[in-house]
Structures are given as C-alpha cells and as structure tokens.
Amino acid sequence: MTSAVTSIPKPTALITGASRGLGAAIARELAPTHDLLLGARSAQALHDILGELPCATGWPVELTDYPAVAEAVAPIQRLDVLVHNAGVADLGVIAESSVAQWRHTLEANVIAVAELTRLLLPALRAANGHVVLINSGAGLRANAGWASYAASKFAMRAFGDALRLEEPTLRVTSIHPGRIDTDMQREIIAGEGREYQPEEFLTAQTVAGTVRNAIDTPRDGHPTEIVLRPY
C-alpha cells in the first residue's frame, strides 16, 4: 500500500510596486519560497517581471482607487506576507510646495498603505502574517527639500508602530534603507543637478535580501525596525 504525499503549500506574499526596482528585486528574492502576488498600477507594467517569474500572479490595481482595491483584495483569504513597497517621492522646498503635492504624497505613502492593510487584516490574521513597510532614512530624519516625503515616511513609521500594538498576532517590520540604486534614484539625483554615481548607493538586491532576512526570522523573534545605510 502506498501513501499519498501531501505537499505543503507555499506561503503567499503580496508585494506592491513590484514591476521594477526594489519591488522587482524583492519578488526575485521571495520567488523560490513564496507564491507571489505582484502589484502595480497596470497589467502592462507587470509584463516584464511576470515574464521573468512566470509562476507569480499579477495584481494590477491603482492603490489610491479604494473601491478597486477592495474588489482586488476580496479573493484573498489568507496572506502570509504583505510588503508595502509602492510609493512616491515628491521633493521640493516647503516655500515652493503646494497643497496638491502634500495630498499626493500622503495619499500614496500613508493613506493607501493604511487602507490596503486594513482590508487585508482578516487574511493576515488567518496566517499570523508579516507586514513589511519599506520606509526610508527620511522616516527617521528629515532633510531640507524633503519635507512632504519625510512627513509621509514618519507617518508610515507611526502607522507600523500602532499596527504592531493593535495586532499582536502579526509581525510588523519597518525597514529604513538609505538611498538605493534605482530608476527613481536617478530621477532624484537629476533633480538635484548632480552626476549619478551608482556606487554611492545601496543595491536593490541588498535591500531585498534584508526583507528576506526579516521574513525568515524565527517566530520567537520580532524584527521591528531595520536601518540600512550605504557602506
């Protein structure tokens, strides 16, 4: 008599902003061990990363379109890992900022994060899941010209601290990397009028590995905050 072999399903991870840069690097890092839901604003944006990771599932939705997000979340009954990577970096000095800039930054970097997490709480609770917030060094210290962005990242950190206390069955990790060598960083440096030197920055792969290490921390440990700087 032969006995059936029962395979253990992989844990599921949802990564927002997964089409390129750090999000794509995190997807590559988790692909061998997780069933992936890869978020982006459109299906077209996910074309390349899904071609590279064909076992992953696209999850295209505009995160500030809250009815659409609620519809996209509805089928998810269990979620082991939620990585909040999507965000915007609207920079500029306070004297030249606008209400629209502040609203755009806080909407994308805080409100959308809070609402997606809220909608996914039943699925996260079902798995005793792990929420990873990709924050920034700007979430620990604000610099001139970064007011709205830093304010959003300080708020994200506060959101994570509150979530950790309110949802004791979940693990919540805030990761604060320094500047990362990505397309977004190239745009920032161009805006600062400086020559781009990639060796000055962290690689996306290094930060993705840090995310993986946090997720892999045994359950007796709770990695609450990780600060990573270029060497």
Rank of each mutant, 00 (worst) to 15 (best):
Q77E: 13
Q77V: 08
R78E: 09
R78Y: 04
R78F: 08
R78N: 05
L79C: 07
D80T: 11
D80G: 03
V81G: 04
V81L: 05
V81A: 00
V81E: 01
V83G: 03
V83H: 04
V83Q: 00
H84T: 04
N85C: 14
A86D: 10
V88D: 00
V88C: 06
V88G: 04
V88W: 00
A89D: 08
A89P: 04
D90Q: 12
D90N: 13
L91E: 03
L91S: 01
G92P: 04
G92Q: 03
V93L: 10
V93E: 08
I94W: 13
A95I: 06
S97M: 05
V99A: 13
A100S: 14
A100T: 07
Q101S: 14
Q101N: 14
Q101A: 14
W102H: 08
R103A: 02
R103E: 06
T105G: 02
E107S: 15
A108I: 07
V110G: 03
V110I: 15
V110H: 08
A112I: 14
A114R: 03
A114K: 02
E115M: 13
E115D: 10
E115K: 12
E115Q: 13
L116A: 13
T117F: 08
R118H: 15
R118T: 14
R118M: 03
L119H: 12
L120S: 07
L121V: 14
L121H: 10
L121Y: 09
P122G: 01
P122E: 02
A123I: 10
L124N: 07
L124A: 05
R125A: 13
R125M: 01
R125C: 00
N128R: 15
G129A: 07
G129R: 06
H130R: 12
H130I: 12
V131Y: 07
V131Q: 05
V131A: 00
V131F: 04
V132F: 01
V132C: 11
V132K: 03
L133M: 14
L133T: 00
I134P: 02
I134W: 01
N135R: 08
S136A: 14
G137V: 07
A138S: 12
A138P: 06
A138T: 09
G139E: 01
G139T: 05
G139R: 00
L140R: 15
L140C: 03
R141E: 14
R141C: 13
N143T: 07
N143G: 06
N143S: 06
N143L: 07
A144M: 03
A144Y: 12
A144V: 15
G145R: 10
G145K: 02
G145H: 06
G145A: 11
G145E: 09
S148F: 02
A150D: 00
A150K: 08
A151T: 15
S152C: 09
S152M: 05
K153H: 10
A155Q: 05
A155N: 05
R157C: 03
A158D: 03
A158V: 09
A158M: 11
A158N: 02
F159L: 15
G160Y: 13
A162G: 12
A162R: 02
A162P: 00
